[in-house]
């Protein structure tokens, strides 16, 4: 593990649309930001769940796609040069002695900041556990949702379930190491790169892997050691012998470690005030879908408003000696300088 320790004004947890816009509002007030997100790209749900879906309620954009919105936000915050830590999950948030915090991630990154902004939406994206009866008993010993070390799969009878890019990629990558490789998917079509599908089919035709049409219904084995999967096929149930199962059924949102940071929670949401959007802990703010207050609407536009008000309060914490002069971007030469348009 590395132990990089960064120092900045504000750490934003979550790089979805609201976290991104917070960079803008904080930037106008001369506050520097680091953002952390578990996904390997900025945009949160907009990027992961609905990049191509049209959004109709962004002010002044009669219609914009999830990806389009993220691109525009990235362009808008460019002048502020925020630092992104992608593919990392925040595991710890600790208060340091003198009114500050250290945020640590599962990749060993540590960031020291005066203010923490939780913009975590519906929580962190994590691999979806398929609804297979008794799968918990095998997780971590025979069932894995990601591949940390390919070597761990050498010599195993591998079963991979799913029809997306992850399923296909790992089928191709692990096939040379495996004792046997079976890919199970409920239909002959895949939502994966055509090239990967072609390669998989070539291996199948050469007899180097088995493609099984069907759905995994249950598992058999003892003491966490997998022996076989029961697969429902168009011709009835069959038993597929296997010692390792890798299910790839996409991502789902889980609240995750947010629950352990000592913040008051209400039904997995973080209550805030509506003046500063501050949590029960001074210096920690929550904006966007993760917060709650009377009248809260889970809309991107509400998150944008919350960002602006939060930034004012964050400014007072980071620069308590500075007076905040309210300015418009249309007329203020100092704001325009920050935006690089003057």
């Amino acid at each position: 593990m590395t132990s990089d320790l960064f120092e900045t004004d504000v750490v934003i947890i979550g790089a979805g649309p609201v976290g991104l816009f917070a960079v803008f509002e904080l930037g106008l007030l001369d506050l520097n930001c680091h953002l952390i997100d578990i996904l390997d790209k900025p945009g949160g749900q907009c990027a992961e769940l609905y990049p191509e879906k049209p959004i109709y309620d962004i002010p002044a954009w009669p219609v914009i796609s999830g990806e389009g919105l993220v691109d525009k936000l990235m362009e808008q915050i460019k002048p502020f040069d925020a630092q992104f830590h992608l593919g990392e999950m925040v595991t710890e948030l600790e208060r340091t002695g003198e009114n500050g915090f250290i945020v640590r991630t599962d990749a060993g990154t540590g960031i020291k900041a005066k203010v923490v902004v939780v913009a975590a939406g519906g929580g962190s994206f994590q691999p979806k556990r398929p609804p297979i009866a008794g799968i918990e008993d095998y997780e971590g010993s025979s069932v894995f949702y990601s591949v940390r070390r390919m070597e761990d799969f050498r010599g195993h009878n591998l079963l991979i379930a799913g029809g997306g890019d992850s399923a296909l990629d790992w089928t191709l990558n692990l096939q040379p190491l495996a004792k046997s490789m079976t890919l199970v998917h409920r239909r002959p079509e895949f939502r994966a790169a055509p090239d990967s599908v072609n390669k998989m089919e070539a291996l199948r035709d050469a007899g180097d892997l088995t493609f099984q049409l069907g759905q995994v219904m249950s598992l058999t084995g003892t003491g966490g050691q997998l022996e076989a999967a029961i697969v429902k096929t168009p011709d009835g149930e069959i038993e597929v012998p296997c010692t390792r199962l890798l299910p790839f059924f996409g991502l789902t949102m889980k609240l995750g470690p947010v629950a352990d940071w000592g913040l008051n929670l209400h039904e997995n949401l973080i209550p805030v005030d509506t003046e500063k959007f501050q949590t029960s802990e001074p210096g920690i703010f929550a904006i966007g879908d993760i917060n709650t207050y009377p009248g809260k609407l889970k809309l991107i536009l509400s998150g944008f408003h919350e960002s602006a008000l939060m930034a004012q309060a964050a400014k007072r914490i980071v620069h308590p000696d500075q007076r905040i002069v309210f300015q418009y971007t249309t007329s203020s030469s100092s704001l325009q300088k920050k935006l690089g348009v003057r």
């Binding site: 409920r186 939502r191 996409g250």
Partner: peptide
């Protein structure tokens, strides 16, 4: 929708 059904149980 067909792609999303891949994530459902007992399709």
């Amino acid at each position: 929708e067909e792609d999303m059904l891949d994530f459902a149980y007992d399709v």
